[in-house]
Computed example of a mutant assay.
Amino acid sequence: MVSYLRTRLLGMVLTVLIVLVFVFFIARLAPGDPAELLLGPDASAADAEALRERMGLNLPVPVQFLSFLGQLLRGDLGTSIFYRQPVLEVMAARAEPTILLTLMSLAIAVTIALPIGIYGAYRRGGAFDQGAVAVAMLAAALPNFWVGLLLQKYLGTDLGWFPVSGYGNPDASIWERVQHLVLPSIALGFAQSAIILRFSRASMLDVLGDDYIRTARSKGISERRVVLRHALRNALIPIVTVIGLSFALLISGAVITERVFNLPGVGSLIVGAVLRRDYPLIQAALIVVAALYILVNFLIDMIYLAIDPRVKY
């Protein structure tokens, strides 16, 4: 176990390093000059050059990378060119909407997908199962932003049940914040539920045909206990895997949804940083997202031990 953890931690560090190198150099290949974008079209060439020198952008790219590595080793991801604040502070100020949106979307997706996937597998080939598979395929094919626009029109504008955009006033309560997140959460959760439903159904189908399930039924155990206690527990590993990956995907995939619903989250922050060529902010945001992916995968592997004692590393 110790050897496995050591290997995984080393792999995680190497993965983050590869992402760091890739993001750093790709960001600087994009057209556009941060100094000119920051100063505006009326700035002189001398002013732009002076700003580039002050920000270190006039140095060769390899030298900039070594400087960035030195900052990173000190725990400093840099200072935003546009906001002129440490990038971690800028991201922390925008983290709440994205985190709440991700958690609500995942809760909606699991609530929809898990019971439907389990019951569909139990009633394999029936009308309910076929209808669930058809709806899942439709949900996977619909773009998130299109579903969001429909929700805005019918549930927000026409019926007035929920706010159509924004995140409330700065002093708004958490309940008001949650109300603003209902529609974007449904838009994201509906699409993600299709993936979880397909995996849940497939995993349960594999388990329900095993010999020990027939043995449990032959002993007179109730169908509810056979399905939920015996079958579901043994089918949980792929289900937990896809739920964990869905959490990471929702964090990184909320960019367009946040723009549609005008949410001041990390997704909107990344879009603005790309448009302004705010290199430190782009780097920090993508590194954090990559680190979340890696961390979620590691936690999923640890959860395997609690779900199935037969799993050995």
Rank of each mutant, 00 (worst) to 15 (best):
G267V: 13
V271C: 13
V271W: 08
D76E: 10
F199L: 15
A132T: 15
K219Y: 09
V226W: 11
A194H: 11
L245D: 07
T98A: 04
P184R: 03
M91R: 02
A45T: 12
L72C: 14
I213F: 03
T241L: 09
T157N: 15
M55Q: 10
R198I: 07
T111M: 11
T215H: 08
V87M: 06
A187Q: 02
P31D: 01
L39Q: 10
F261M: 08
R52I: 09
V19M: 08
L37F: 04
L236S: 15
I251D: 01
P264C: 08
Y4M: 05
N262Y: 15
R277S: 11
G209A: 11
F22G: 06
M137P: 01
G168Y: 03
L232E: 14
A141W: 01
P309K: 01
Y313I: 04
L197Q: 09
A121T: 03
I239R: 08
R214G: 02
R52Y: 00
A43Q: 03
P34I: 08
I81Y: 15
W161L: 15
L72D: 11
E36M: 14
N144R: 12
N144G: 09
F247A: 15
Q130G: 14
V164E: 06
V255L: 14
S203I: 02
L151C: 00
I307W: 00
P34R: 13
L73Y: 14
V289K: 02
S268P: 05
G70I: 08
F22R: 11
A202W: 07
R224A: 14
Y313C: 01
D206R: 11
I307V: 11
D158S: 09
P309L: 01
K219V: 02
G156C: 02
W161N: 06
R8D: 05
G209V: 10
T79H: 13
L88P: 04
A109T: 03
E258H: 10
L305F: 00
G148K: 00
I116C: 12
A172N: 08
P115S: 10
L155E: 05
I287V: 13
A291T: 08
L150N: 03
V147M: 06
F298A: 04
L197T: 01
L73S: 14
V19D: 06
P309R: 04
G156T: 03
P86L: 12
A109K: 06
V227C: 09
R28P: 02
I307F: 00
Y154D: 06
N234E: 14
L155F: 06
I287P: 03
L69A: 05
E258G: 10
A93Y: 07
